[in-house]
Each structure stands twice: as structure tokens, then as C-alpha cells.
Design a protein around this nucleic acid. Structure first.
Lengths: 165, 165
DNA sequence: TATTGTTATACTCTATAACTATA
DNA sequence: TATAGTTATAGAGTATAACAATA
């Protein structure tokens, strides 16, 4: 069994946070914040993140952990440095995420045959099973957050997001 | 003068992060991540955040700090608990952000006349001056990140974002 | 009793820098 | 020398819980 990191495993967003930052508090003047696209994105992301945590809390999974598991699963023989590059984080950050996933018994470090400094990352058996459930839950989560958009609107949203930044 | 919190003040995103999570690493299979709207939002937000830090680093300002300053500025007599509610965070988190802004000499706690437990939050003189510059920099940042979109597309993006989550 | 602000504690994500072992 | 992984240290954002002072 995976060791739970805590009873409320992840970033401890409070319950009331869901009411906020997507539905601003009435009576409060948010000034320029209302005009900023960046702020609109931020609010959307906070709402989405809250739903993510609600849906995934039982797996002790966070967005970066899910990204790491997925990338490890899809790229056999991946090394830690490559994982860091793929995720866009520092090597030390990749060590942390791999340590967390190892503690959960989702991921394993395996000696690399050709390089004694390195090792390959791979999912454990429980990790494979967990990733199936997690992926299904995340697909449902993703469908839920985008349920108010038509297929055409979703495509347009993706196109516009890709133009941002 | 505002005390700089550090030479690279904020969340220390590495320079190479800008290359990533919006332009995935070639040769890496991202699997289901590519399909998820939530992931597309996350990548957009990371790109935007990087630009935010590049533009605002000299002010020791982060998105939550900017939100707090703006809300304090626009809502005279605001109390700490109200700031927490407005920002959608716990009271203890509001204490932290106010402490940070106080250390920067941007915000001040003033005794509330009617309630001896509470106080009103307000910008200091340097805080007002800083907020002017910060706001201008953030407006430029916001224009920059959305420069590839037409006005109509921006409106559509806002509409679609509001439907998400 | 309930609320205001605070502090204690904890977890996640991220960074830079220095280090060890190996290439 | 350069690279792979690790550890040490640090900052920021967030949470829950308990507490003193006041309402």
C-alpha cells in the first residue's frame, strides 16, 4: 500500500477557497486585477486546482507528481536529469518529486546498465495500477472543469492559450 | 527604500523554465498530459508567471503580494480578516503577506478606532509610489503576454476562462 | 461565546550551490 | 573536466490548530 503523506495530502487549500478567486467576494473592489488577463488565468487555475485536489487527494497526487509519473511511464529508461529537463525544473526538484513518489511506492530507481552514476526511473507495480486510476480520475476531472464549453469552444480555448505568454 | 528580500526575489524559477512547459521538450512523450485542458492552463500560467517575475523582480513583488496591495489600496479600512477573505486564503496566510509587505515598507497596520482587537491596513507613502510603478509594469506585462491575440480573441478568451472550473 | 490577529507547525514546490562518484 | 545524482539551505505560498485579547 502507498503510504499516505497526510490525511489531507496535498497543498491544503481550504474548503472556502473554492468559493473564491473565481467568484470574487462581493463588496470588495479588486481594482486593476479585474482588467488583467493574467489574473483571469490565475483565478481559473486556482478553481481547477481545487477540483484537482478534491478529485486526487486520496492518491496523494499533485499536478507535478502526476506529470512526473506520466512522463516516467511514457519514456522508458528515463534518467533523473532528463525528467528534470522534461518537467522544466531543477535537478534537485526532480530528486524531491522522485523521493516523494518512491515513498508512495509508485516509482523506483533502477541501476542504469551503461552508466554507474545514473539510474533509470520506472513505475512499480502499484505505481502502474495507481497511474491507471489516477489518470481516469484526472480525465474525469478535466471533463468536469470543461463541461460548460462545447467542443468547438474547447478547441478555441486551447488555441488562444497557446498564443499566450 | 524597500528592503529587497533577495537578489532574485521571488520563487526562483530557473531561467530555463521559460523554455519549458509551454514549449515541451522535443523527444519526450508527454502522454495524456497533452490532452488535458488543465495542463494547457497550467503551462500558460507558468509562462505568464515567468514573465511576471522577470518584470516585477526588482520590486520584490509576487502575484499574491500585488493582489494584496491592490485590494488594500482600493478598500480603505480593510481589516486583515477581510483581506484574507477577499484573497481566498487563511487568516494566517494574510498575516504572512502583510508581514512581507510591511517589511518592504509598502503596507502599515493602523489601529482600528472601533475595535481594539483589529486594525486597518493601508499603504505607506512608499507603498503608494511603488504601487504606481508596479501597476504600470504589470499592465505592460499583461499587454505583452496577450500581444498575439486580437481584442476580439482576448474577449473570447476571458469568456471561455470564466466558464472553466 | 465568537471574533481578531498571532504563532506554532507542517507540507509542497521551487531555487542555487556545493559535494561525491563516475565518465 | 564534465555529468549524474544528492544534500544543504532557503524563500514563498498555503494549511490547520491553539492561543490571548477583546467583543
Amino acid at each position: 500500500m502507498a503510504t499516505k503523506l497526510s490525511s489531507r495530502p496535498n497543498n491544503r487549500l481550504p474548503a472556502q477557497r473554492a468559493d473564491q478567486f473565481g467568484a470574487q467576494v462581493p463588496g470588495v473592489d479588486y481594482g486593476v486585477l479585474e482588467d488583467l488577463v493574467g489574473y483571469a488565468i490565475r483565478r481559473a487555475q486556482i478553481r481547477i486546482y481545487q477540483d484537482f485536489l478534491d478529485a486526487l487527494g486520496q492518491w496523494s497526487i499533485t499536478p507535478p507528481r502526476f506529470s512526473a509519473m506520466t512522463i516516467i511511464d511514457r519514456n522508458p529508461g528515463l534518467k533523473l536529469t532528463h525528467l528534470a529537463t522534461a518537467m522544466g525544473i531543477a535537478r534537485s526538484g526532480a530528486v524531491e518529486v522522485v523521493n516523494a513518489l518512491e515513498k508512495l511506492d509508485y516509482v523506483r530507481r533502477v541501476d542504469a546498465p551503461t552508466d554507474k552514476r545514473a539510474f533509470a526511473l520506472e513505475l512499480t507495480e502499484p505505481g502502474h495500477a495507481a497511474l491507471k486510476g489516477i489518470t481516469a480520475a484526472i480525465r474525469r476531472h478535466d471533463a468536469r472543469i470543461s463541461s460548460k464549453l462545447s467542443a468547438a469552444e474547447l478547441g478555441e480555448l486551447r488555441r488562444l492559450l497557446a498564443l499566450l505568454g
